[in-house]
Structures are given as C-alpha cells and as structure tokens.
Design a protein around this nucleic acid. Structure first.
Length: 293
DNA sequence: CCAGACGTTGTT
DNA sequence: GTCTGG
DNA sequence: CCAGACGTTGTT
DNA sequence: GTCTGG
C-alpha cells in the first residue's frame, strides 16, 4: 500500500483539478432560490445561523502510509481530488474511512453532509451540516439515518480551534499527546441529484459533544474523538449497544490532547494551505483561555 | 391538513 | 423522507 | 472555522 | 446582519 499507484496519485495531485473545483463552481452558482425561503427564514428567530465548532483540521498526504496502516485500509479511491492538507475547511473534499462489510476504504468525501432530499449542492450553503451534535442525532432528520446506518471515521492529525475575542482570534493546533492520528466520529452519505445518472458524491459530517475539562478551557464543544478500541464499534452499528446507541459518544480522557499556538495569518483566512500551518509559534495563549466557572 | 424546514454555537 | 409550525 | 462580500437584467 | 468561499 505504501507505494501503490493510488498512493502516488494521492501524493502528486494533478495540476488540473477534479471534482473539487467542479463542486465549487456548482455551489453558489445559483442564488435565485434563496428569495423563496427568505420569508420563512425570517420567522425562524429561535434558530440562529452561526459558525459551528470543529470547522478546520489537518490531514496531510505525507502521512498516507501511516493512515492506511493505522486504520487497516485495504482500498483507496478518488483521493486525488483532496486538495487541502494543512488547513482543511468545510465544503472541501477530504479523505474519510468507511468500514463497509469488514473492508476499510479510504475515500474522498465532501465535508458537509448532503441529506437524500437535497436537490442541489447549494443545500450546504443554506443549512450547516459539517457538524452534527451527538445529543440530537436521533432527532435530526438530516442525521438520524446516517447515525443509524452510515458511520465513518474522519482521520486527522490535528484540528484547529480559536480562542480570544473577535478580531484577535488566536488559532490553536490540537492533537493527540501520543502523536497518533485522531479518529473523529463521522457520518456519511452518498448523494446525487434526483435527475443525475452520474456517480454519487460521498459527503460527511463530524459529530460534536460537550467538551472534557481540558478542552473546556478552549471551547464549549469538541469533536467526538474515538479511542482506539472504539473505532470498530463506531463503524459497525450492528455491534453497537442497541439500548444505548450513543453510549460511546463522549469526550476523551483529560490527558488525551495537547495544544499549541499556530500562525493566525496562515490559519484565519482559510485560503492558505501550507506546511507552516502546523508550526508552533510559541505565542502565549494562556490569557485567552476561558476561565472555568 | 399543507407548507416549509431540515443545522451548528458564539457573542454581545 | 420526516418533522414542525400554523 | 474565519475572511470578505454584500448587484442587476429577463423569461417561463 | 447574513451569506459565500476557501
């Protein structure tokens, strides 16, 4: 797997882009239909549209071999469309681990879950679906069936989180203390427009939970980070405790993670995808952390 | 019943 | 498709 | 997630 | 303020 042709394709991404660019050109192309829902949106004053958490992370190609080894991947597909590595934002393509039928596949997916009834990719510009709250997975039409039947892993070297007041936001790199890969709990779907005869688009979301004590200094949500022995259970719903399907949706141990400051000029815009995004700037962010109640 | 939403969490 | 709001 | 834009026409 | 783009 280490030096296979697909691995090569993954490393040497083509100059001419694939789906990602096509997707981007589709998303946001049509805006006329927003007028139709404007009145309805105005009435939803209890549903605020705001940025969710866990909205940026890192997964680099140089660790592909480790990814394959760590998850026991026996097949990879379409990874060349994953353009981002060091600074991956929502609605970009990124690799996820599917565990269907005992096989572990690493496939490129769009970071924003498309529900089956969505008519067009613009859906993800109207309804935020790149995070899903663990507490309400069974209640949300957008996530319920995916939670019951279509779970995945979202592998990450680190995720980024911001601390401090608006205008002075300081990004932090949050990773495992032991240096291993993070396994964020995810849900996936294969989506295509009703009229389309093309190949469906794989899409995914990252499940979030209330944070542990360590993480609560930084934020009031965190991604569900599966422990090594929870990965199989998550991927295979049939094995999950049927009475408490979400019993392993919990925050990790207090000593699981570590953090360091990263360059806000590189991270904040979302445009830059460079190796330096991971570098510790040495900035003292302690004063920016939340004071616990 | 029909119409319309369907989602996240920060900040003041 | 399924749920909520009216 | 944050940064940065924020617009129009017609027609079926 | 709210949406899109990356």
């Amino acid at each position: 797997m280490l030096g296979g042709p697909e691995a090569e394709a993954f490393r040497a991404r083509p100059a001419v882009t694939g789906c990602a660019i096509i997707l981007r050109s589709h998303i946001g192309h049509k805006r006329a239909d927003r007028k139709l829902s404007a009145n309805a949106d105005d009435r939803l004053d209890h549903v605020k549209r705001s940025p969710p958490m866990c909205g940026r992370y890192r997964l680099t190609r140089r660790r592909l071999a480790e990814i394959e080894q760590y998850y026991g991947i026996d097949d990879t597909a379409g990874l060349e469309v994953c353009e981002r590595q060091f600074n991956i934002p929502p609605r970009e393509m990124a690799p996820i681990v599917l565990g269907a039928k005992g096989r572990r596949r690493l496939m490129a997916g769009l970071w924003s879950l498309m529900p089956p009834w969505a008519e067009a990719l613009e859906h993800v510009n109207k309804v935020s679906t790149f995070n899903a709250k663990a507490e309400t997975l069974l209640q949300r039409p957008s996530f319920r069936n995916a939670f019951l039947k279509r779970r995945c892993l979202v592998p990450a070297e680190a995720f980024y989180e911001w601390v401090g007041p608006k205008g002075k936001k300081q990004p932090l790199n949050i990773a495992r203390r032991d240096g291993k890969l993070l396994s964020m709990a995810g849900l996936f779907s294969f989506w295509k427009p009703a009229s389309s005869k093309g190949r469906p688009l794989l899409t995914f979301t990252v499940v979030t939970i209330t944070p542990n004590r360590w993480m609560s200094r930084i934020h009031d949500r965190m991604p569900v980070l599966l422990q090594d022995d929870e990965v199989d259970v998550w991927l295979n719903p049939a094995v999950s405790d049927p009475d408490r399907p979400g019993s392993f949706l919990k925050a990790p141990p207090e000593d699981f993670l570590e953090s360091h400051a990263v360059d806000k000029n590189l991270l904040n815009s979302g445009l830059i995808d460079a190796p330096e995004c991971a570098a510790d700037t040495g900035v003292d962010y302690e004063p920016l952390l939340r004071t616990r109640a």
